[in-house]
Write a protein that binds this DNA or RNA. Structure first.
Lengths: 252, 252
DNA sequence: CACGGTATGTGGTCGGACCAGAAGTGGTGG
DNA sequence: CCACCACTTCTGGTCCGACCACATACCGTG
């Protein structure tokens, strides 16, 4: 049984601290909303310097598990929270920029995730969520809207539908994946030849998507979502060079 | 146009440093493989202390964009890399433990992602990848295998298929999502009543999945993958309490 | 030319100090 | 008794300077 154990060295103390805190989370002893002791107290508990502790806390903050506030009072100090969206967004955005994956990968991932989102939304979304999405579509349809704001609203539309599906994970993933290609999409929209026509076409699809979701026709909504996304990305590939995969030296 | 600008305060200097480095990445001036100057040189460039710079670098390291090695020579120092897997895995693992999303969310996300993976694998996978997957299935079929190792190999099977699909993003996401529920699945497997029967049933599906992929029947493979995953998770929900969503105070 | 000790440079850690800000604390005057 | 205001306290954020461990480059010695 060649299990191929990793070298695992990990002599870095801040990772040991991190591991210790993570174990508390996995064991359920640290839950969302809990507050950590002040850094000056916690560091000696772990037997490390405040700097090392701070680096561990910074990691937790980076992945959206912890927020820290200076000052005094009930809201001060380090608190366990659950905010994966920003972390995931930053992660995918940077890795997309570095070419960890290409535009085609993003396209397929979006199709997979949003098919699921629209299908689930057709079953679970309540009227309030869909009304908000409708309002977004309405604002996207205003004449004279610029690609900049259109891009912003389009993102919000897709994320809104995803979150209305009741699935926090696909919602988060959808949002992060969409965000990671936002600059690319913006540049593509700005470079499109007939902007009003493109805008109108996309909005017609948005409206139809919402109509299908409202009438609980999940499968049709999923199909149209796929067409919508593939068509959109098809425009992108025409306007941009697809980010190709380069060899890497950082194989985990 | 109520765009609702965020407060954005961000007085923390390490975030400014981070932002500056990120811009270099987005502008393509920092690419995978590039080396950063030593911390002692870089800190004064940004006009910050070494500690603040280090916290920014720690963030980049956390999201798998940078690795650092002490010592001297061509391999020392901080290098830009592309290793999103560990970062994504840790992120989803912790957030799942904190209840940012529940087991049902993971189920649906897995179905969406792996349907796409198996479908794409049927079109793009080469023989070598599938042979590796076959080998994994073979080892899972060895009599007397324990849930511990089975869980390990099952993860590797699904990740292997995902990576063979040629889509680095869905592969990474599949891996991370699967990893986030690994402890849960392990406990479920260990608690299952008739372990040999369960094992045999799952392996039969694995073998059939590979057969469908090899014969390029993507749609059927996707359907079976969905059945496979839903059945698996169905066992889980029976054995475990589904992690319910708690209210949160950390709205981004 | 081969070898081995030493100097150098890297990230990692540590301790102490100070800063800015928010809230508690207590004194003061109405 | 209450309202107001200055002061104290506590928090994370930052900075500085020093040392450690380790791997390499360097250079003297054989």
């Amino acid at each position: 049984m060649p299990v191929e154990w990793q070298p695992v060295q990990q002599s870095r103390t801040h990772e040991l601290v991190l591991q210790s805190i993570e174990e508390q989370v996995f064991a359920g002893k640290l839950r969302a909303g809990d507050r950590l002791p002040p850094e000056r107290e916690l560091a000696p508990v772990f037997g490390v310097s405040r700097s090392a502790l701070r680096e561990a806390l910074r990691v937790l903050e980076t992945i959206g598990v912890l927020v820290a506030q200076p000052g005094r009072g009930p809201d001060s100090g380090a608190r366990i929270v659950r905010n994966p969206d920003d972390a995931l967004g930053r992660l995918l955005r940077l890795h997309f920029a570095l070419g960890s994956y290409g535009l085609h990968d993003v396209l397929e991932a979006r199709v997979a995730l949003e098919r699921s989102s629209f299908s689930a939304a057709a079953h679970h979304a309540d009227a309030a969520d869909l009304d908000e999405a409708e309002e977004v579509v309405r604002r996207m349809s205003e004449p004279g809207i610029l690609p900049e704001e259109f891009n912003e609203l389009d993102t919000r539309f897709h994320v809104k539908v995803a979150s209305s599906s009741g699935n926090a994970l696909t919602s988060t993933l959808t949002s992060a994946v969409r965000e990671s290609v936002r600059p690319l999409i913006l540049r593509a929209l700005e470079a499109v030849a007939d902007w009003p026509a493109t805008r109108t076409r996309l909005n017609a699809q948005h409206a139809e998507l919402l109509r299908l979701v409202r009438s609980r026709r999940g499968e049709e909504a999923a199909d149209l979502a796929e067409v919508h996304i593939r068509g959109f990305h098809g425009t992108l590939v025409d306007e941009n060079r697809t980010g190709d995969a380069v060899e890497d030296g950082g194989g985990s």
